[in-house]
Nucleic acid binder design. Structure first.
Lengths: 145, 145
DNA sequence: TATTGTTATACTCTATAACTATA
DNA sequence: TATAGTTATAGAGTATAACAATA
């Protein structure tokens, strides 16, 4: 048995895919924790954020804007509706469609969670100078599409 | 119902936490897919990589090097052992401890998966110039400690 | 026949705690 | 009593397919 401490090799620890995966997980974990007192999880926040900008909207379009499956969205909307944060109204012109929109409480929750998201981002980037933060944002944005 | 497409607001789409989480997930997804033919998942690769550098090592130390729980490691080692990629030998000086190490096949698998990791990283960063890639790596490393 | 919302299922990753055998 | 390994459980996130109502 070796006496030296076991450690992750450099080629892994410096791989951007590994770093992104690790930091991405940590980022989500912190945000989840920081909005828990609002009674929502990150996925709920995504729904509220889209609705704040584009409501009313049908569920399929909402799922598409989130890059998610429409079946997965149903449960989230059930929870958000039960909390009084969103409304589902059936569209009179096409009764298959539900027009989803935010309630006033939903709008407040989105704003508050948005403030928290900015704060958590600040904590996550605390090791970087302001210029570096913007450069990182640019690089990530460039990879994202 | 609005006619314009629903979309994610800018303050979310440009939040570094959101971008990291999204890219981290995508990165892991691609790597998982790319090593599937080796019969391992990313977590197995982490184990192999640590062992390639620091074996033999006890399971608790291995888990610590991976930033993981020792209970979670057990199942991974069972699978790796069943595939003939790692060996567990009981330490004669302390029979509670298992000295874990790589088999020759385990070493080969680690090298092959390492090559794949570099390739996947290259594909992930294809939108960035070489200098930008190194800058990104530096920024991520700076956040990671 | 195609689409919208719904329901069900399964699989992975993660977190936690309790159990055993050794020390 | 403390530690190493093991086992069991539960929750969240994701992916997939099949279903009923409506177009």
């Amino acid at each position: 048995m070796e006496t030296e401490k076991a450690r992750l090799p450099e080629d892994v620890a410096l791989n951007c895919g590994y770093l992104l995966s690790r930091l991405g997980f940590e980022s989500r974990r912190r945000f989840t924790e920081s909005i828990a007192h609002l009674g929502i999880r990150p996925a709920h926040y995504g729904v509220l954020a889209v609705l704040a900008e584009s409501a009313p909207v049908a569920q399929t379009e909402l799922a598409e804007a989130l890059g998610a499956d429409r079946g997965w969205l149903v449960g989230l909307l059930d929870e958000l509706e039960a909390k009084g944060l969103v409304r589902r109204a059936s569209d009179p012109r096409d009764r298959r469609r539900h027009a989803v929109s935010l309630t006033p409480e939903g709008k407040r929750c989105r704003r508050e969670a948005g403030r928290i998201a900015r704060r958590v981002e600040g904590e996550l980037l605390r090791g970087l100078a302001p210029g570096e933060r913007e450069h990182l944002r640019t690089l990530l944005r460039q990879m994202a599409p």
